[in-house]
């Protein structure tokens, strides 16, 4: 494997790590519990409304193969 390929792989996995890291606050909140503020509740409701109203699985990323 060339150095360039290694760099590309590291970039790909760093991007993956970033994605999971981005979700860490949500995970932390789920685990720790506590009070869901009015803003928290609005964010969850808005996300749920978006999920219901959109065709969330129509993009090319959802195509098998």
């Amino acid at each position: 494997m060339s150095e360039e390929q290694i760099k590309q792989l590291l970039t790909a996995f760093t991007a993956a790590a970033d994605l999971v890291e981005k979700l860490a606050p949500t995970i932390k909140e789920l685990f720790e519990g506590g009070e869901a503020t009015v803003a928290d509740q609005k964010n969850v409701k808005d996300a749920m409304d978006r999920l219901r109203s959109s065709d969330a699985f129509s993009g090319p990323e959802w195509k098998v193969g």
Binding site: G34, E35, T37, D40, Q41, V44, K45
Partner: peptide
């Protein structure tokens, strides 16, 4: 969980199970 989730009054949810 270390603490139970509760809902601040006046928000979009009145049922914590549905929120979670």
């Amino acid at each position: 969980a270390c603490k139970k989730t509760t809902l601040a009054p006046g928000g979009a949810y009145t049922d914590v199970t549905l929120y979670q």
